[in-house]
Design a protein around this nucleic acid. Structure first.
Lengths: 192, 192
DNA sequence: TGTACATCAGTGAACGCGCGTTCACTGATGTAC
DNA sequence: TGTACATCAGTGAACGCGCGTTCACTGATGTAC
């Protein structure tokens, strides 16, 4: 069967979007190619027309997730009153909604502990995606120099990813919410 | 073969210690019962005389890791000058040594993103272990009331676990160290 | 314009592999008498 | 004190399962003439 002209690009994007969500929801290790392709109504044999390997897909899916998250954060910042962009990003990041929707949220808070165990080549691709994410959001971070902004961003987002991860790990909804509230107050005071 | 009297307890502890290290180093999903038992010179069939299931081992290994980490933190606090206990804990937690030895370090920074995907029963056991860890270290956290100490501990350790996770994810040693330094300064100022 | 042919996204079966789990068995030690 | 027996930690082979990957094949469409 020869398939319509742009179908390959569309299928490629669908695999990426589905994998990016599925990996964040269920983990990158146990949940695999099979379930992603099945969800799209395709057979797993066809996967290799689109990606070199599972590792390749992981790197691309993480990149997709960072772009998606960058969109969310940018949107939050843009819809905030002037001077309150970073606070809006903090509030969005540390929201109950974000805790409850890992599949559409920060990929570091969802898969971060697995990154250090990836092959070096994959880790570097992930680092590059994170850098691009950082550069996009740098405009909303206070600081005198670019370097100072980068440092503050790294510290703030690393810390917040830990808070989000811990909130999700906690089975008690009340404890989750208290941690989020305390963290919103704390990071807003410290960084804005 | 009937084995010497206390051998069962010894083997049980060895499995626990080995699993706690191996899971933190290689992840809890891919690395499994087989490699833990093999490392101890045992066959995997014998595993089920000691633990109900893989999940059971995971919960116990996480508990073991929290106790071990509690020892490390307590030791850091006790060997610090009076009034500087928390700072010593922060410095120890955010050290290069901790980054480079995940197998003996904080289990949240090593496996945290997988916790939210565990069955509820396992998640509750993990939460209980974390609570015990928190209560042990509470004495070194400033605050007027117990509740205030608990809240500060939760926020500080969740944030620091994110920093550690992000440092490990970064393939660039220089960036890792800069993040650690900035974080040590920041958390010391904010919490001590 | 019509015809012959090349393309290649997707199929579906097969591959080896390691996983968690089960189970009949072993046999040196502890216990009962 | 000596003997018969029960115990049970650990063995090793087997189980079904899903994983990532490979590959010969399909056949509607795009291209060349």
């Amino acid at each position: 069967v020869r398939y319509p002209a742009q179908q390959k690009a569309e299928t490629h994007d669908k695999i990426l979007a589905t994998a990016a969500r599925s990996f964040r929801e269920h983990g990158a290790e146990s949940n695999g190619i099979g379930s992603v392709m099945k969800e799209l109504g395709l057979t797993k044999g066809g996967f290799y027309r689109h990606f070199e390997s599972k590792d390749d897909l992981l790197a691309e899916a993480v990149n997709f997730a960072f772009k998606q998250m960058g969109d969310h954060m940018t949107e939050a910042a843009r819809s905030a009153p002037p001077g309150r962009e970073l606070q809006a990003m903090i509030d969005r990041y540390l929201s109950l909604e974000h805790v409850n929707s890992p599949g559409a949220g920060c990929v570091v808070a969802a898969l971060g502990t697995e990154f250090s165990r990836q092959p070096l080549a994959i880790r570097k691709r992930i680092n590059r995606s994170l850098s691009q994410y950082r550069e996009r959001l740098l405009a909303f971070v206070p600081g005198r120099t670019l370097e100072e902004k980068r440092q503050r961003f790294a510290l703030l987002f690393a810390s917040m990813s830990g808070v989000l991860m811990n909130a999700r790990a906690n089975a008690d909804p009340k404890a989750r919410e208290e941690l989020l509230i305390a963290a919103r107050v704390f990071f807003t005071e410290a960084f804005t």
